[in-house]
Design a binder for these strands. Structure first.
Length: 869
RNA sequence: GCCCGCUUGGCGGAAUUGGUAGACGCAGCGGACUUAAAAUCCGCAACCCGCGAGGGUGUCCCGGUUCGAGUCCGGGAGCGGGCACCA
C-alpha cells in the first residue's frame, strides 16, 4: 500500500522511452562493472593504497537499513578515493558464527551451516543490488574452514607465545539448558531462554592475555587522531587505569598476610577496617570452618548482579574475628570483615577501609559502628572543626593526624606513603586496570573449535599445525540442551598427538569476537594458505577508513587492537593499530505504530490519510503513532531495503540515506524523504536528457565566456571544491545539498556557445561528483554525454582556484553590531573604500543620525561594523 | 554517582570555526501547464507589529568577554550515550 503512488505512476506512463528506467539501468551497470572487474584491488604495490572497510555483517537473514547506511557511506569513500587515483581495497565478508544459527537449528530444525550459507546468499544478492564498489573476489565467511583454520593456527601460536592461558573461572551456568550464558543473556538472575535461576559455576576456560597490553592499548589511543574522541574515551574508561599501591596487612595469629590494593595510600592513618571479598581465598578457608560465615557468603551470592540490585544493595559485612596489623601504627590492629561490596575481580579482592574519605567505606563504617577519622583536611579549614557526617570527603587537602605524612598534600602524601611502605618491604607502588583478560571459551557448536587435545598423560596438547583445521562435525544433534560437540559420539575422541594414547578434544569453541578481531587482515590476502601474506598486510594495513556502529566502540575495536599486537608478536604483521581512521555512524530510525489493541504494526500495515489521520490498511482502525526509534524487528518499525530498491532503485535509497542527516547522527527514515530523493534522481536524468542534443562534444575547446557562462562556471567550480571538502570530512549531507544547488543552477536554458560549453562542464561535474552517492545513474548519464570510458574509472575533477574565488564580494554592514545593509565590493578592496561605501548607505546614515561615529571595524571581504554612540 | 555528547523555523538540518542565522531537503502556501487530476516547472516562506516602506525580537535559560557570540567563558535546565559497590 505504501508505494502505491509510485508504482501506479510508473505503470501508467505513456512516455516510457523518455523516462529513466532505473531497474534496467542499475542492472546494466552492475553487470558492466563486474565484467570490467572495476573494483578489484590491484596487486601493484607501487600505487598509493587506500583501504576502506565497513564492519562486516552478521548473516541474520536479510540486510536492514543500518547496513544500507553503513555500506553506502563506505562506498562513497571507496569510489571517491578510487577517483583520486588510489589503489582501493574495499572488501566484504560475513561474521558468520554465532548463536542465532543454533537457535534456528533448535527452533526450525535447519542445520546452522545451511541456515548461515543460505542467509549469506540472500544478503550477498541484496548487497549487489545496492551497486557497492566491492572487491567480491576477496569475500570471506568466518564459519568457513578456510578462514577458521588460520584462526586455530594463530591460537596455537599465541599459546606458544604465552598470550593464551587456561584457568578456572566463574561462569553463568544455566542448569536447564546446560549451557554457559553471556552476561547479557542473564536477565534478573535468570536464563533468557529457560527462565531458570542462573548458577555461578567454575569451569576451565581459555583466556587471551589482553591485560599484558593494557598500558599500550591505553597510550596507543593518543595516537588515534582520526578516531572519534568519544570512542577513545570509552576505551580509556574501559581499560580503567588506576595508580596506587599494594600493601600487606599481617593477620594476628596467622603466618600469611592480607594483601590489599589502594589508590589512597595517603589515607592509611585513617584506616578503620580491612575487608575481603566473599570469594577471597581467606574467606573461603574461614567459611569451611565457620557455618555462619558460609551462610553469609551464600546469601551474598544469591544477590542479583543487575545494576539495580547493586545500586540498592546495602553494604554488609561479616566480622571474621581476625585482626590485621596496621603497617604504620605500632600495635594498632584493624578488624577483618568479609564484605559483599568487595570484588574478587579487581585489585586483590581485599581493601582497607578509610571511612572519612570513601563513601562506601563510610556507609559500611556507620552500619558497623567503626571509627571515622578524617586525615585529609581541606585547605583553609580548621582541623579541629572538620567533621565527616554522612558524606565522605574525597577532595584535596592537607594530611592531618597522619604521623610522618602530616602537612603534605594528597599527591605528596601518596608518594611518601608508598616510599615508606617500599622501604619497610610491606608494600609497593602499583598500577591496576579495570580491564580483565579475555575469556574466549564458549560451550557452543557454531563457532571456531579450540584446537586443543586433552591427554591424561601429556595434559594440554595443541593440535599440530599440519592437522588443522579442526573441523566442526556436520552430524550434530540439537534435540537436547547443551553443547552438541560434547555429546557427539566420535568427534572428540582422538589419539594424543604427542603420545598416541586415547585423548579428548576441547569441545569448546571460541567467542565470535575472535573471528572479527582479525578479518581486516585476512582481506589483504584472502585466499592465502597462511593466515596472512606478509607483503600484502605490509602494503594494505592499517585500514585507512573503518566505518561502523558505535555499539562496537569498546569490545570489537579493543579486541581488534589487541589482536593486531598479538599477531605482530608472532610475526604475522607489523602494525599495532589496525584502524587508522574510524567513523561511527548513527542509527536508522522510524516512527512506531500500534493498533487499538496495542500491537505493533509494520509501516506497510498503516495508511496515512490526506486528512492527517492514521489507520490500519486492513480495516481502517485508528493507529497510534509513536516516537521515532532505531529500527527493530520487535517494534516492527522496519523498512525493507529490498522493497525500497525495487520501488525506487538503489540510487534513490543511497541518495536519501546520505541526505539531510549528518552521518554520525541518527537518521529518520521517511517516505516523503525517499520520494524527494527519487524526484532528484529523475530530475537529474531529465536535465541531461533535455540538454544533451544542444551540448558541444566532450573535450571541445573552451570558447570565450560571457558573464552568464562565467557565473555558471563559478558555481560549478565552487561545487567541486565544496563537495570534495565535504566528502573528505564525512559531511555527506552537505555534499548532497551542494549537488542540489548545482542541479538548480543548471536548470536554466538558453544562451550561446559559451553557455552550452559551461553547461556541459556543469553537467559533467554534477555527474562526476554524484557518482559516489548514485553510481548507476551517474554512469548512465556519463555515457549519454558521449563518454566511452567508464565513470568508475575516470578521475576526480579539480576546482579552478580562479573560478572558486569571486571578483566581487558582498559585505555586510552593521551599525553597533546590527545589520543595516550590504555593499558589493571588489575582492580585497581597500579598507578605506569599504568604510566609505558602508557609510554612504542610506540605512546606515539613518541609524547614525544624532550619533557620533567612534570607530569603524573593517574585516576585509566580510563585514564593516560602524561603532557609534 | 562518575565521565561524555547534544539542544537552531512546523520537521531533518546549514552556517567558511568569532563576522549577513536558517543553505539544502521535507511538509506547507501561491502561481503556470491541464477539461481535470497526477507528474512537472516557477515563486513565497523564522517569529511579532505594519496595507506598505519599514521596525522589533530571535539559535534551551541566566550572566559575562567582544566593535560583533549559534560559535568563546561561568552558572543552570532538558534530552541522549558510556561506565559503575573498581578500593
Amino acid at each position: 500500500m505504501k508505494y502505491r503512488k509510485t508504482l501506479i505512476y510508473l505503470g501508467s506512463l505513456t512516455d516510457m522511452a523518455a523516462r529513466y528506467n532505473f531497474r534496467e539501468t542499475e542492472t546494466k551497470w552492475q553487470t558492466a562493472w563486474q565484467e570490467d572487474a572495476a573494483f578489484a584491488a590491484s596487486n601493484d604495490r607501487a600505487q598509493p593504497k587506500y583501504y576502506v572497510l565497513e564492519m562486516f555483517p552478521y548473516p541474520s537473514g536479510r540486510i536492514h537499513m543500518g547496513h544500507v547506511r553503513n555500506y553506502t557511506m563506505g562506498d562513497v569513500v571507496a569510489r571517491y578515493r578510487r577517483a583520486q587515483g588510489f589503489n582501493v581495497l574495499h572488501p566484504m565478508g560475513w561474521d558468520a558464527f554465532g548463536l542465532p544459527a543454533e537457535n534456528a537449528a533448535i527452533e526450525r530444525g535447519i542445520h546452522p551451516a545451511d541456515w548461515t550459507y543460505s542467509n549469506i546468499a540472500t544478503m550477498r544478492g541484496q548487497l549487489k543490488m545496492l551497486g557497492l564498489s566491492l572487491d567480491w573476489g576477496r569475500e570471506i565467511a568466518t564459519c568457513h574452514p578456510g578462514y577458521y583454520r588460520h584462526q586455530q593456527r594463530m591460537f596455537v601460536e599465541f599459546l606458544n607465545a604465552g598470550l593464551v592461558y587456561r584457568k578456572e573461572s566463574l561462569v553463568n551456568w544455566d542448569p536447564v539448558d546446560h549451557t554457559v550464558l553471556a552476561n547479557e543473556q542473564v536477565i534478573d538472575g535468570r536464563g533468557w531462554r529457560s527462565g531458570a535461576l542462573v548458577e555461578r559455576r567454575k569451569l576451565n576456560q581459555w583466556f587471551f592475555r589482553i591485560t599484558d597490553y593494557a598500558e599500550e592499548l591505553l597510550t596507543g589511543l593518543d595516537r588515534l587522531d582520526r578516531w572519534p574522541q568519544k570512542v577513545r574515551l570509552m576505551q580509556e574508561n574501559w581499560i580503567g587505569r588506576s595508580e596506587g599501591a599494594y600493601l600487606d596487612f599481617p593477620v594476628d595469629g596467622r603466618s600469611d598476610a592480607v594483601t590489599v590494593f589502594t589508590t589512597r595510600p595517603d589515607t592509611l592513618f585513617g584506616a578503620s577496617f580491612v575487608a575481603i571479598a566473599t570469594d577471597h581465598p581467606l574467606a573461603v578457608e574461614l567459611a569451611a570452618k565457620d557455618p555462619a560465615l558460609a551462610s553469609f557468603v551464600a546469601e551474598c551470592r544469591t544477590m542479583g548482579t543487575t545494576e539495580e540490585a547493586i545500586e540498592k544493595a546495602e553494604k554488609r559485612g561479616y566480622h571474621t574475628g581476625l585482626r590485621a596489623r596496621h603497617p604504620f601504627i605500632e600495635n594498632k590492629t584493624l578488624p577483618v570483615f568479609v564484605a559483599n561490596f568487595v570484588l574478587m575481580g579487581y585489585g586483590t579482592g581485599a581493601i582497607f577501609g578509610c571511612p572519612a574519605h570513601d563513601q562506601r567505606d563510610l556507609d559500611f563504617a556507620r552500619k558497623y559502628d567503626l571509627s571515622v577519622m578524617p586525615v585529609v583536611i581541606p585547605v583553609g579549614t580548621d582541623p579541629t572543626s572538620f567533621h565527616v557526617g554522612n558524606e565522605a570527603y574525597t577532595g584535596d587537602g592537607r594530611l592531618h593526624n597522619s604521623g610522618f605524612l602530616d602537612g603534605l598534600d594528597v599527591p605528596a602524601a601518596k608518594r611518601a606513603a608508598i616510599a615508606r611502605l617500599e622501604g619497610m618491604e610491606r608494600g609497593k607502588g602499583a598500577v591496576t586496570y579495570r580491564l580483565r583478560d579475555w575469556g574466549i571459551s564458549r560451550q557452543r557448536y557454531w563457532g571456531c573449535p579450540i584446537p586443543i587435545i586433552h591427554c591424561e598423560a601429556c595434559g594440554v596438547v595443541p593440535v599440530p599445525v599440519e592437522q588443522l583445521p579442526v573441523e566442526l562435525p556436520r552430524d550434530v544433534d540439537f534435540s537436547t540442551p547443551g553443547n552438541p560437540l560434547d555429546r557427539h559420539p566420535t568427534w572428540k575422541h582422538v589419539p594424543c598427538p604427542s603420545c598416541g594414547a586415547p585423548a579428548e578434544r576441547d569441545t569448546d569453541t571460541m567467542d565470535t569476537f575472535v573471528d572479527s578481531s582479525w578479518y581486516y587482515a585476512r582481506f589483504c590476502s584472502a585466499r592465502s594458505d597462511k593466515p596472512v601474506e606478509r607483503d600484502a598486510v605490509d602494503y594494505w594495513l592499517p585500514v585507512d577508513q573503518y566505518i561502523g556502529g558505535v555499539e562496537h566502540a569498546i569490545l570489537h575495536l579493543l579486541y581488534s587492537r589487541f589482536f593486531a599486537r598479538a599477531m605482530k608478536k608472532v610475526g604475522h604483521l607489523d602494525v599495532d593499530e589496525p584502524f587508522a581512521g574510524l567513523f561511527t555512524q548513527g542509527m536508522v530510525c522510524h516512527e512506531t505504530y500500534k493498533d487499538p489493541a496495542g500491537k505493533w504494526l509494520f509501516p506497510e500495515e498503516v495508511d496515512k490519510r490526506p486528512d492527517g489521520s492514521v489507520v490500519t490498511v486492513k480495516d481502517g482502525k485508528p493507529v497510534t503513532v509513536g516516537r521515532s526509534e532505531s529500527m527493530s524487528k520487535s517494534k516492527k518499525n522496519v523498512v525493507d531495503p529490498e522493497t525500497i530498491i525495487k520501488s525506487y532503485g538503489a540510487d534513490t535509497a543511497r541518495w536519501f540515506i546520505l541526505s539531510d542527516s549528518p552521518p554520525e547522527r541518527d537518521v529518520e527514515w521517511t517516505d516523503a524523504g525517499v520520494e524527494g530523493a527519487f524526484r532528484h534522481v529523475n530530475r537529474a536524468y531529465r536535465l541531461v536528457e533535455e540538454a544533451v542534443s544542444s551540448l558541444p562534444p566532450p573535450e571541445a575547446p573552451a570558447p570565450a565566456f560571457g558573464d552568464e557562462a562565467l557565473a555558471l562556471r563559478r558555481t560549478t567550480h565552487k561545487t567541486i571544491a565544496g563537495v570534495t571538502d565535504d566528502i573528505e570530512r564525512f559531511h555527506f549531507n552537505r555534499a548532497v545539498a551542494r549537488l542540489y544547488e548545482l542541479t538548480a543552477a543548471l536548470s536554466a536554458d538558453g544562451g550561446g556557445a559559451d553557455m552550452a560549453w559551461a553547461r556541459r562542464e556543469g553537467l559533467e561535474t554534477l555527474i562526476r561528483l554524484s557518482e559516489p552517492m548514485m553510481p548507476h545513474l551517474a554512469e548512465e548519464l556519463w555515457a549519454r554525454l558521449g563518454h566511452t570510458t567508464m565513470l568508475a574509472r575516470s578521475s576526480w575533477p579539480k576546482a579552478d582556484p580562479d573560478l572558486v574565488r569571486d571578483d566581487t564580494v558582498k559585505v555586510a554592514v552593521q551599525v553597533n553590531g546590527k545589520l543595516r545593509g550590504t555593499i558589493e565590493l571588489p575582492r580585497d578592496a581597500a579598507q578605506s573604500d569599504a568604510e566609505a561605501a558602508a557609510l554612504a548607505l542610506a540605512p546606515v546614515s539613518a541609524a547614525l543620525s544624532g550619533k557620533t561615529v567612534r570607530k569603524v571595524v573593517v574585516v576585509p571581504n566580510r563585514i564593516v561594523n560602524v561603532v557609534a554612540g
